[in-house]
Design a protein around this nucleic acid. Structure first.
Ligand SMILES: [Mn+2]
Ligand SMILES: [Mn+2]
Ligand SMILES: [Zn+2]
Ligand SMILES: [Zn+2]
Lengths: 147, 147
DNA sequence: AGTAAGAATGATAATCGTTATCATTATTGT
DNA sequence: ACAATAATGATAACGATTATCATTCTTACT
């Protein structure tokens, strides 16, 4: 089942309609890799249909996220970005506070321990946010060089 | 060394001055437990000195955080809160998406593994953000009852 | 196909949290 | 005390997000 069909299924099951702008935004979003801001997505969508409005991107990316096709990642500076989950299994982020570079990683050990914590407190898991903040090797070198 | 002295030391070492508003805001902040918004802190500070302005709370809480006396925690809805670190060792958060309840926990195993990840990628650690999102036992019961 | 009801859209205004500006006040080293 | 300079608080400005609303699109039903 492809992403478009999943989205359509989600919309129908929530009494909402599949429309051209929603299709265009999903297509634009899936076609770009990485962590995209709302305006990134708007720019991509306008390449397909210049009539797309920003408000609709806000509305649609929220639907796409609710449908489980994307997730939100807050940058260190508070900026919101989205990444799609097609061919993109779950991972966490290691973020350089110097240059903003993002490394994606997955730690089965941490994922497992997180599950144990949910169980310990009787919580039903709904997801998690983990971002490690540090200084990448290049920025460390730069910092040493400038002293 | 108490928090006020630490703050004063930080300010001096950064060419900044200890002032009455800064003392009042720090005192108000330390006197309240939990996760406080800017306006929470402003409200507490105004109890001590009604003349305190919101802009100064924004400026001062940033200084307090830079001084290592507080840390920022983004809520699930993006709202910023701060908690002070006095008598409050490092921990992470388990957050109920139903009622907003926050449980604080510490997993040495996760902390250790995070360090290994920093090392693996050659990053100099600068901190991390981890929030587990789930549904607390009470909200699970409520959800079952209402179906 | 045609139609009517309701949902979605996009332009725009409104809102909200935060930051910048700036005249006034407070702090500090002399 | 004084001069130099930093900090303050009121307010304006800003950027991201959300609300509003007239118009257009979708869909279910004839
Ligand atoms: Mn990612
Ligand atoms: Mn906490
Ligand atoms: Zn870097
Ligand atoms: Zn709850």
């Amino acid at each position: 089942m492809n992403e478009l069909m999943k989205f359509e299924t989600y919309l129908r099951s929530h009494g909402q309609k599949m429309t051209r702008p929603r299709r265009v935004i999903l297509e634009a979003f899936l076609g770009a890799e990485g962590h995209l801001s709302i305006d990134d997505i708007l720019r991509e969508a306008k390449k397909i249909d210049p009539g797309i409005g920003q408000a609709t991107v806000f509305r649609t990316i929220r639907l796409i996220t609710s449908a489980g096709l994307a997730r939100e990642a807050l940058q260190e500076d508070g900026a919101r970005t989205f990444e799609h989950l097609a061919d993109h299994p779950h991972h966490d982020h290691l973020l350089c506070v110097g240059c903003g570079k993002i490394i994606e990683f997955l730690s089965p050990l941490i994922e497992q321990e997180q599950q144990r914590i949910f169980v310990r407190y009787g919580f039903e898991p709904r997801g998690h946010m983990m971002e490690l903040l540090g200084l990448c090797p290049e920025c460390q070198a730069k910092e040493r060089g400038e002293h």
